[in-house]
Design a binder for these strands. Structure first.
Lengths: 183, 183
DNA sequence: GTCTATAACCAGATAGAC
DNA sequence: GTCTATCTGGTTATAGAC
């Protein structure tokens, strides 16, 4: 394992907190995962408490997600949906933390903001504009935007938490969703 | 709070495990929630361990979900999708347990079977039959079935875990999804 | 069946040598 | 910065009176 001890602790914490929830992970586990002697308090030279390291993990993941951000493709619904699935994939660990920790996640507001901004790429106004241009059939734009958003989010969450075999690959899924909206 | 002490312990355990995860809940909390003296070992007159009560909770919820089962409506896609959303609602606590406990949930296989049977009502074969009858346009049936399933599951999960304001009500959501598939 | 009391244990956190 | 050793508090689980 590479990086400073602090970074190795953060890496271990991210992996274990996302997989098992922070309550289920002992500081000892983090020390062991970072190559420190388990049971030594060496962890506390780097973080004040377990809550502190959780906050630092969330912080780092939010920064990373923001840094990874790219602009939504303008080419078509198809490409835009595939792009959104990829974005969700990049936030996989953060989403796992959010779901496992629930309302007690540090920096909860920042994570929610990040996800809301992600969802904004799929908003009803964009659909309304496409409907006005005759690009896609006119329907209840707000409801269709909901369906699109939740189909993409559901695809991601089901895969992550239910181990659901999606059955069809990502491109085919995005294409089917675009086809439903566009015809 | 009504019922026997055992039932009150189960009720408390369900609520708290679903909300915070079993790791975060102490046996003391369960005793308090059931109106027993916290710290007394009275819990252990009813269950052998915390793991034991978690298994009993899952067991009872699976039984309940099976008992609540009704046959899918044949009236139309619209009604069928609304019915599925209601079914997911009835499994809310079980889904929360599954997501919070992850792979260490007792009776995991039974829960997964239950969810898979639920998803089977929305399978590709049904869509293929409707396409063959000309009831809905011909598309990639497997991919469309995926989209439908994940839209419904995503609607439920987003509401449950992100506190997402769905924006449109349940009937409008189901109607929009049916409209996308049917035209 | 529930209580008080307590044993045994483990996790979070600190002190001080190196 | 990491270690050994330890304190402290909370949690699981049991013993025995009522």
């Amino acid at each position: 394992m590479a990086g400073t001890t602090r970074e190795r602790l953060l890496d271990t914490a991210l992996a274990q907190f996302a997989a098992r929830g922070s309550e289920a992970v002992a500081v000892t586990d983090l020390e062991q995962g970072a190559g420190l002697s388990p049971g030594s308090g060496s962890f506390y030279r780097h973080f004040r408490s377990k809550e502190d390291v959780l906050a630092a993990v969330v912080d780092r993941e939010v920064e990373r997600a923001v840094a990874r951000r790219s602009t939504a493709p303008d080419t078509g619904l198809d490409a835009r949906y595939a792009w959104s699935l990829d974005n969700l994939d990049g936030m996989r660990a953060l989403i796992a933390l959010l779901v496992r920790e629930g309302g007690r996640l540090p920096h909860l507001d920042r994570v929610q903001t990040l996800l809301a901004e992600e969802g904004a790429h799929l908003d009803a106004d964009d659909l309304r504009a496409r409907m006005a241009r005759g690009e896609i059939p006119s329907r209840d734009a707000d409801a269709v935007a909901s369906v699109v958003l939740f189909a993409l989010v559901g695809h991601h969450l089901a895969e992550q938490f239910f181990g659901a075999t999606v059955g069809v690959d990502r491109a085919r899924f995005a294409a089917a969703l675009a086809s439903l909206v566009a015809t």
